[in-house]
Amino acid sequence: MASEFAIETKQLCHTFGTGAAGVRVLHNVDLNIKRGEVVILMGPSGSGKTTVLTLVGCLRSVQEGSVKLLGTELNGASDETLMRMRHRIGFIFQAHNLHKSLTATQNVQMGLQIHGRQANRNWREACRHMLELVGLGDRVDFMPDQLSGGQKQRVAVARSLVGNPEVVFADEPTAALDKESGHRVVSLLRRLADERQTTIFMVTHDHRVLDYADRIIKMEDGRVVEEKSILFPGMESANH
């Protein structure tokens, strides 16, 4: 293993716009997230959390400082490298963004298909299994229009997890979910971290899910202002 850290940033800075109109949104952010760790990033809107997520998630080019994802330096990486790195990670967005013309299973299949024919050999079982894990075993052939908001979000979660990503980036994954679905999704992420050493990097405001994390990082005005480790993650909610 190249590095014990899944995500490592050093002196990460980012500016939107250029010249006098440029606005610096990140100031020397240093993060170290171990493999298998569940980290929650909090902060008021405009604090730069989403920018961190897009930079580390290979969706935006790194301008200044260093970002290492799974041991690969992203500063100066080619589009090709960024695209290849994205095959190894998973995204859960605030909006589900399911393809309306595809069934639940087919949407999940889109997450698997990127890994080529080899990974697709048992796609039907893999997709079905993943949908069962998010509690949608009885909705596999439903179109998105026939599913509730929470169910759609869970299909999106299944899509991002079906390819066994090494790191999962989640942006407010529980915002559209009721309490029970929210806990179900986050506890699933927690289990992936414990069982498969999947790293979970999540932006959320949802206080209901905070105790699933190993660590909570707070940002304000583009700087990390507080880091807090949780001794027994998941214990409190386990009593629910």
Binding site: F91, A95, N97, L98, K100, G111, I114
Partner: peptide, 15 residues
């Protein structure tokens, strides 16, 4: 009409 879906697929890593 499908821009957000396509963007999601791009994020997944589709070329």
């Amino acid at each position: 009409d499908h821009l957000s879906e396509y963007a999601t697929f791009k994020a997944i890593g589709y070329p």
